[in-house]
Design a protein around this nucleic acid. Structure first.
Length: 475
RNA sequence: GGUCCCAUCGUCUAAUGGUUAGGACAUCACCCUUUCACGGUGGUAAUAUGGGUUCGAAUCCCGUUGGGAUCACCA
């Protein structure tokens, strides 16, 4: 049978990394077996709807290469793919479930949470009295216009059992299960209900979702069973954590896909990194394109313990992707970050120096700050033990360098390097004793995108000579 | 609190009863070098804990500890 999976986000704001990973795995589970991946928007909670959130979902998935075979925008044989447009479809199933004995009408007021003296939530089991209202009487009250919900009916004896593809056999007492609302007063289904109906109607074979649903899955199974529908294969995923204690959330600065993009991470690197957060290929390869992942992904190599999102490793991986970029492509991506460079600066030369030295595009700004304005640096910068330079050496070297550069006509890296190298030789100095002071004089920075001669090319002759004068004045 | 789940270097993970417990990131050292990077070589670093089972346990079982999830007319 053809595998069908779905990504079913609710449009409530930004796409966070855990969400994206779920979508990725859903996509890969289907694609690895030549199946279909569909997109369904779950907007049954009208109160939480955020304008523009669906576009973020579309854009994000497209950008990382997760393409859906069916969805709200492209349609398909099982539409509509937006739950609010499916609204009228759910109620008949809910009433049907009442008839089959899997649910009942409930007239209780909305439950409010209770808190004890210390402000902790009081957990008490809810026993629905409406369960005992005879069906005929309930129907009369509904006909009379009384507001109602439809609640799942659960026979509280015995144990439920099912197999999850990553967690194995899960057994839970039916007594633990809550008789949750299926159809709300406003006529909308709850997530629990809409999910079951839609997944069945859309022919979803593998339900892939976060492990927080592990304990409530028996409730879904009960519905499948009562309707006489085949249960799907369950694949529950462990959470992505911010640290050992906290799940990654979109609150307070936790990485969202959009945030990472803004900081200069590449979509390919992000997707590669999160694919490995909870899954591994069983080989030592770590760099994968999404196309490669489609070939080799398998459910059995999914991990069941939570994984902490490590921005440091992502950053490293992003650096790998940046270094692998063709020079043209790198320049295209780096250029916007070089927008405020002086007009005479050779941006291509600068970009070439930058490519092996940055891990995110966001790092460009600080690396090139010196080009626009020489920082006010301390003379101590000229001291470097390894290069055997100090202030004395700089005092001797800088005037010599100035002399050579003033006469220099061919202003490119090789020519400049040759000139300075022979200057060192002529004076019985080490290369570093000439080049290190030159680099500091040009940049005023301890670390720079390139060596002295590369900086010289970027800055141009006049500016270099000016900066050497500044340096000499400092000493 | 009840229930469910999880537990290998700091982090992501490999090892599905027999390995000097492997790799990657990070970190440290060295090499290369025109600084910083890149690249190369090497090092530090882990089976939470106590009991079993077994010739043999990271691996199977039980307890403990620690962590997470869940118990909404949110998804």
């Amino acid at each position: 049978m053809k595998i069908r999976t779905r990504f079913a986000p609710s449009p409530t704001g930004y796409m966070h990394i855990g969400n994206l990973r779920t979508a990725l795995y859903e996509y890969l589970i289907a694609k690895a077996k030549g199946g279909d991946f569909l997109l369904r928007i779950e907007d049954t909670d009208q109160k939480r709807y955020v304008e523009g959130a669906t576009d973020i979902i579309y854009d994000t998935l497209k950008m990382v290469g997760i393409n859906w075979d069916e969805g709200p925008d492209i349609g398909g044989d099982f539409g509509p793919y937006i739950q609010s447009e499916r609204k009228d479809l759910y109620a008949p199933y809910a009433h049907k479930l009442v008839e089959l004995g899997g649910a009942h009408y409930c007239f209780c007021a909305e439950r409010e949470k209770e808190y004890d003296a210390e402000g902790n939530e009081v957990i008490c089991k809810f026993e629905d009295p409406c369960k005992r209202i005879p069906l005929e009487e309930a129907r009369k009250r509904i006909a009379a216009g009384e507001p109602y919900t439809i609640r799942q009916t659960i026979n509280k004896t015995g144990k439920s059992k099912y197999e999850d593809k990553v967690y194995g056999i899960i057994e839970i007492d039916y007594d633990e299960l809550d008789e949750g609302v299926l159809l709300k007063t406003d006529g909308f289904p709850t997530y629990n209900f809409a999910n079951v109906i839609d997944d069945h109607l859309m022919g979803i074979t593998h339900v892939v979702r976060g492990s927080e649903y592990l304990p409530s899955t028996p409730k879904y199974n009960l519905m499948y069973d009562t309707f006489g529908w085949e249960r799907p294969v369950y694949v529950h995923l462990p959470p992505v954590m911010k640290d050992a204690q906290h799940k990654l959330s979109k609150r307070n600065g936790d990485a969202s896909f959009q945030d990472l993009l803004a900081k200069g991470y590449l979509p390919e690197a992000i997707i590669n990194y999160i694919a490995l957060l909870g899954w591994n290929p069983g080989t030592e390869q770590e760099i994968f394109s999404i196309k490669e992942l489609e070939q080799i992904f398998s459910i059995d190599r999914l991990n069941k313990s939570p994984a902490i999102f490590d921005i440091v490793k992502l950053t490293w991986m992003n650096g790998v992707y940046i270094r692998n970029l063709p020079a043209e492509e790198f320049y295209r991506l780096a250029e916007p970050h070089l927008a405020d460079m002086p007009a005479n600066v050779d941006k291509r030369a600068l970009a070439a120096a930058l490519q092996p030295r940055i891990e995110t595009f966001g790092q460009i700004a600080e690396q090139v700050a010196f080009v626009k304005a020489l920082p006010d640096y301390a003379p101590e910068l000229f001291v470097n033990k390894k290069m055997k330079t100090d202030i004395e050496v700089a005092r001797k070297a800088l005037p010599l360098i100035k002399e050579v550069l003033t006469d220099q006509t061919e202003w490119n890296n090789d020519a400049l390097f040759a000139a300075l190298k022979s200057l060192a030789e002529a004076n019985g100095m080490k290369n570093g004793q000439i080049l290190y002071p030159a680099r500091i004089a040009f940049s005023g920075q301890e670390t720079t995108p390139g060596g002295a001669t590369e900086l010289a090319v970027v800055l141009g002759k006049d500016e270099c000579l000016r900066r050497i004068d500044t340096a000499i004045a400092k000493l």
